[in-house]
């Protein structure tokens, strides 16, 4: 279901993409920024259009130029799929806490788009030096079906599958199909943090645009379990904000492991 992208092909693509990047930058300079209507034509090899669009997006982010996320593109399809993937593999405690709010946000396209922008911004700095290569692609259509099926089974198993939630999953499935069919999820492997980037593409009347991004995907959907090194680095990385977070200090406590007053010991 996940098509691996051949290494030689990838190297060619990287070279081609570099040429493409130059073309994009030229167009960008002319237009003042990367623009949603840029046309990437003959400079790139004859590779999958979805992958080409995803690589252009990554280069746009790496270049630090403005205008990688296009206003007006409908990101709701990706948001629907991302919600399904979350229901299928996210933490139940997070789902219990945030699902109603997340669904509320999903009904507002502006908020959906803002969330996508925020996610791109979060990783923009680290992606610049991460050396990300596209390595695999999978059609969105099948992924949507697998995510919806897995979400249903999981929620049933956890006793969360009630009438209302069944309708939600079905609604998200339909919406994801309507807006993402014909698109793909492209996986990038990076040499450095964030190590993995997944970009969702959408075919909008023949113009392929990137409409969503995540840095994690469960193994059952084409992701993988991160290595110990990757986990170590990511847990202290800037995008997640844990490396610089203040550890709460409990006044008078015995130790961080024993957060009660010393007199009680």
């Amino acid at each position: 279901m996940v098509d691996r992208i051949d290494r030689d092909d990838r190297s060619d693509a990287r070279r081609g993409s570099a040429r493409g990047l130059a073309a994009v930058l030229v167009v960008g300079l002319a237009a003042g920024a990367c623009t949603r209507d840029r046309v990437i034509a003959s400079a790139l090899p004859n590779e999958e259009p979805t992958r080409r669009a995803a690589e252009s997006f990554v280069h746009c982010v790496e270049a630090g130029t403005s205008g990688c996320v296009a206003a007006g593109d409908n990101h709701g399809g990706w948001d629907a799929l991302h919600l399904l993937l979350w229901l299928a593999s996210g933490s139940p405690v997070g789902i219990l806490e945030a699902l109603p709010r997340q669904l509320g946000e999903h009904t507002n396209p502006m908020v959906v788009q803002e969330n996508f922008v925020r996610e791109v911004e979060r990783y923009a700095t680290v992606m610049r030096g991460a050396e990300c290569d596209s390595v695999a692609s999978q059609p969105a259509t099948q992924l949507i079906e697998r995510a919806a099926g897995a979400a249903r089974k999981r929620l049933e198993r956890l006793g969360m599958w009630r009438g209302e939630l069944a309708e939600v999953v079905e609604g998200l499935r339909i919406e994801a199909h309507e807006e993402l069919d014909g698109g793909a999820l492209i996986r990038f492997d990076c040499m450095r943090d964030p190590y993995r980037v997944y970009l969702a593409t959408h075919d909008k009347g023949g113009r392929i645009v990137v409409v969503g991004m995540t840095t994690t995907l469960a193994p059952e959907f084409g992701g993988d379990v991160p290595s110990r090194r990757d986990v170590d680095v990511r847990l202290s990385s800037r995008p997640l904000g844990l490396g610089t977070a203040q550890v709460p200090i409990i006044e008078g406590a015995v130790d961080p492991w024993l957060p009660f007053p010393l007199e009680e010991l």
Partner: peptide, 15 residues
């Protein structure tokens, strides 16, 4: 929306 990532040519109204 944050300026770095959001593009958007002014001529393109949001969906």
């Amino acid at each position: 929306l944050p300026a770095l990532a959001l593009a958007g040519p002014p001529a393109a109204p949001a969906a």
